[in-house]
């Protein structure tokens, strides 16, 4: 029983952080119909910004979430404005391949600058645990990371729904032609969207850096988890990433208790495929997005 509660809590904490990793991916997909294969590289970019700031200034990685987000925002804005916008109307293959090429470039840069080795950002407290009755332990690092991640994700949802900029992004995602007629500058809005998504990835990366080791080779798996979370949550629902992240986190955590080795990943992918075949709009998504012919 203790083990089950422990696994569930771990899964929820992991899931909260996964939500922040994936929310930008989901946003870009939902608004621009672009699947950004370089998303995982953005997450790592945030982790390395935090690592540099820690080594140079001794900054705490959770504090570094802010500068990491700022750096990644600028990078994302420029990439969308001057690169992805050039092919954004092309069939999805084209944007997939473009972002794949981008991922190759970014990953190679990270490898050259920071070596391919695994690194971590040490803090004085992240390994200590909060002890709850019933011999349940929660590491402070994971707790803080998950709470901050959920807070940032929720803040993003409110930003999208309550501010002029957020609403213009959502409107452009629903009908770009109509949004342009309302005076929305689509080029700028797209760049802004991509920038915000990259900023979320950067913040998530800094938080990940505080709780785990990382290397440039992890870019793929961050992208893949974002994929799964976005699909589980369903596009078009801003809360989707949060649901998706929590569900995936808990399922993976339970699975690793029950199954040997990495079989839990096979289960996760089987779940994904079955979910796609049965309910392509995700757990909470709207059917409209799934039925849309995108090719």
């Amino acid at each position: 029983m203790t083990q089950f509660v422990q696994a569930t809590l771990y899964g929820l904490l992991q899931g909260g952080l996964l939500a922040l990793v994936a929310v930008g991916f989901s946003l870009v997909w939902g608004v621009m119909n672009v699947v950004n294969l370089a998303h995982g590289a953005f997450v790592l970019g945030g982790a390395y910004v935090a690592l540099e700031l820690h080594d140079a200034l001794g900054l705490d990685p959770f504090v570094s979430m802010v500068p990491a987000a700022a750096v990644l925002f600028a990078l994302g804005y420029l990439i969308q404005r001057y690169l992805v916008n050039l092919v954004v109307n092309a069939p999805i293959f084209i944007t997939l391949i473009l972002t794949f090429g981008l991922e190759m470039v970014l990953e190679n840069l990270l490898r050259v600058w920071f070596t391919p080795d695994y690194q971590s950002i040490p803090t004085g407290y992240a390994q200590d645990s909060l002890r709850l009755p019933g011999d349940i332990r929660i590491p402070y690092g994971k707790l803080i990371a998950a709470l901050l991640a959920v807070a940032v994700t929720v803040a993003l949802v409110y930003f999208m729904r309550r501010t002029r900029t957020g609403l213009s992004i959502l409107a452009t995602g629903m009908d770009r032609g109509a949004a342009r007629l309302m005076g929305v500058k689509a080029r700028h809005v797209y760049a802004l969207t991509f920038g915000i998504a990259a900023a979320m990835a950067g913040a998530a990366g800094a938080a990940e850096g505080a709780v785990r080791t990382f290397s440039p080779a992890d870019a793929r798996s961050f992208t893949l988890f974002s994929f799964v979370v976005a699909v589980l949550g369903g596009l078009g629902n801003m809360w989707g990433a949060l649901y998706g992240g929590l569900v995936l986190g808990v399922v993976m955590s339970w699975g690793s208790q029950l199954l040997s080795g990495t079989m839990v990943n096979a289960v996760a992918f089987a779940l994904l495929v079955v979910l796609l075949a049965v309910r392509p709009q995700g757990i909470a998504g709207k059917a409209f997005y799934a039925s849309r012919v995108e090719v």
Binding site: V35, A266, F269, A277
Partner: peptide, 23 residues
Amino acid sequence: LKGHYFAIATLGVAEGLREVVLN
């Protein structure tokens, strides 16, 4: 499935096969 959904689902099948072989 269409578009990105087909892409991810087939990616999932491939990754799943790898995990099965591995395990």
